[in-house]
Design a protein around this nucleic acid. Structure first.
Lengths: 148, 148
DNA sequence: AAACTGTTGTTTAGTTACTAAACAACAGGA
DNA sequence: TCCTGTTGTTTAGTAACTAAACAACAGTTT
């Protein structure tokens, strides 16, 4: 066995990454870079967020989030309002930001649809095997993550 | 169906990426950054290579390859010799480079082993279904890749 | 022969996307 | 009043690129 599964998987990850690193418009008049659309995506899904929450969610330092958010602010995709908590600032999407969010969703829609189709056509036993595989890989990666 | 497959897959990609972006030693006295170990990996697998070939294989411009290779040269992991073709320069691994290559392989070995174990325990019909899924995702991503 | 062409690899300037560290601004305690 | 803990921000530095100009060479054309 020449490990076709692993090779196919790695090829897929590479393809995914090369797509995800391109800048696009997402239906607005401003180019959005990967880091920017990632933040918009997070806010679009979870609603208004703080810098710290975004930092935890995306695994990026608060400084990094702050930098990308100032760019998004200048581009008019997000706005900041006083938060409830101590020194907190809420970040939410403007109308333009929502346009970009939906534009991004629309781009991924065919993929999601195809995945749903596939999921529906798989019987439960096979599905469980696939889930086991994914979980095993995930565990193995976790082990690697901890290593120095 | 809330698309568990897609979610698990994306989580896995994120985890893989976060592991792959860390700098490590790989058994030598020099820190190797992701871009550097990727080039070492490519040469380790394919044998001596030229800048152009590495550029094609890794999908990075020749300028980028050249830059990373000068770093690897200074760190003593690769060496350059005159190539056969016109103006060609062969890039190959030094002993230190081979150490790093095997160090990288050793890191991924448990993963490969686990994957082989899994592959062996899957019957052919299930395996074919999984392959179909991976190919479908791959095709869908190709479609996205072409889009402007 | 001289000029053009095509290939190779390199260098430079510029960019994105970070991190680490210092900083600022505020509230609640000791 | 000072200390602490939280928030977010700014700064300097880095990796990993790209695009474009460049150089160096051989083969072909004029």
């Amino acid at each position: 066995m020449d490990n076709q599964l692993l090779q196919m998987g790695l090829k897929l990850i590479n393809r995914y990454n090369s797509i995800e690193k391109k800048a696009r418009y997402y239906g607005t008049d401003v180019m959005l870079y990967p880091s920017e659309i990632h933040i918009i995506e997070a806010i679009g899904i979870s609603g208004k967020m703080t810098t710290t929450k975004l930092s935890d969610l995306l695994g990026i330092t608060k400084g990094g989030i702050s930098q990308t958010c100032t760019k998004l602010l200048k581009k008019g995709l997000i706005c900041k309002t006083d938060g409830e908590g101590l020194n907190e600032i809420y970040i939410s999407l403007t109308d333009k930001g929502k346009t970009a969010y939906y534009g991004h969703q629309r781009l991924h829609e065919p993929m999601i649809k195809k995945m749903n189709e596939l999921s529906d056509n798989i019987d439960e036993t096979t599905m469980n095997i696939i889930k086991t595989i994914l979980m095993t890989i995930n565990d193995e990666l976790s082990r690697l993550e901890v290593e120095e």
